[in-house]
């Protein structure tokens, strides 16, 4: 990002830096669209948002020399250069008019269809062993891990002050339960506590797993149910849901949900789109727009739930 910054602002534009930074911090970019500093700050913002995406980082780096020439040209004749760029970019007018109405629906059927083919193939491949690997192994390995640590703790004769410390640190009721169950074990007395399966760990970990699962209410939806639930979600929530677990991610990348992207109320300005169009190489425009949408989602202020 620093490199980008240095590149964007040449030495003769040093006097403008203060105002540019102000523009960046304030993010007030709507009404000063034709302003020179604002143009630069938009470039900066785009560099930042694209730089945060791994796929496009190298492309952005490639694009720098070309953009440098552009910057010089704009520096010579600011308004004229800008307007000529506006005129030369095809599709920009359409974009501007539709974004002026506030609604922008882009059909990504072709681009994303190809894009999603590998992932759906992976989805199919993954599907066969989903049930065996679905969230259970984590529990399983965790409980093994846990017991291993328990054994280590008992063998090292760690006294129970450890657990009291842990108890005072966290307010979780689950942990309190566990501490309660564990203390008799550490004292060496296998008590008749309600959770015998933890104490009697020789009996196999299957029962302890089932106990742990009983403690919480789980919603183990099947794949088609998840698909049905996700069809009610917007893209932001879909992205959130994709991060929950492996099954949900596989369900959330389904082609049906990503046919159309909704750019309504997004923080994407015309300049950002413009820079995408002026890149010297052939950018996959749907993919780039998709990245822009994601970037605007991520830069969304905390607390606002979006459209």
């Amino acid at each position: 990002m620093k490199i980008w910054c240095c590149f964007c602002f040449d030495e003769e534009e040093d006097d403008k830096k203060g105002t540019m930074r102000g523009g960046i911090a304030g993010k007030e970019s709507e009404d000063k669209a034709e302003d020179m500093e604002n143009y630069d700050s938009e470039g900066f913002l785009l560099g930042f948002s694209l730089g945060s995406l791994d796929e496009l980082q190298s492309q952005v780096l490639d694009a720098r020399p070309e953009l440098e020439e552009r910057e010089d040209g704009v520096g010579a004749s600011a308004c004229a250069g800008f307007s000529s760029t506006v005129g030369s970019s095809q599709g920009f007018d359409q974009f501007a008019s539709s974004s002026g109405q506030g609604v922008m629906e882009v059909d990504l059927r072709l681009g994303l269809g190809e894009e999603l083919l590998p992932s759906s193939a992976a989805f199919d491949r993954e599907e066969c062993d989903r049930d065996s690997h679905n969230k259970r192994p984590k529990v399983h390995s965790f409980s093994l891990d846990w017991e291993c640590h328990l054994a280590a703790a008992t063998s090292l004769e760690t006294d129970s002050s450890n657990f009291h410390m842990t108890d005072s640190k966290t307010n979780g009721s689950f942990l309190k339960n566990e501490t309660f169950y564990l203390s008799p074990l550490l004292d060496g007395a296998v008590a008749d506590s309600p959770l015998d399966s933890v104490a009697g760990r020789d009996g196999g970990d299957a029962c302890s797993i089932s106990r742990m699962e009983d403690l919480v209410v789980r919603m183990d939806l099947t794949d088609d149910l998840l698909h049905m639930v996700f069809s009610f979600l917007k893209h932001i929530d879909l992205c959130m849901a994709a991060m929950v677990c492996r099954q949900w991610r596989a369900a959330s990348v389904h082609e049906d949900f990503w046919r159309f992207l909704n750019f309504e109320n997004r923080n994407i300005s015309v300049q950002q789109y413009l820079i995408l169009e002026r890149l010297p190489f052939r950018v996959d425009l749907p993919l780039a727009l998709w990245c822009l949408l994601l970037a605007s989602v991520w830069s969304r202020p905390e607390g606002s739930t979006g459209a």
Binding site: F142, H149, N162, V217, R218, M219
Partner: peptide
């Protein structure tokens, strides 16, 4: 949805402290 709390609390504090 997944009853994640149990695992998370245990892994983050409990085991980490012992470790």
């Amino acid at each position: 949805f997944l009853g994640y709390q149990l695992f998370e609390i245990l892994t983050s504090n409990f085991i980490w402290n012992i470790w």
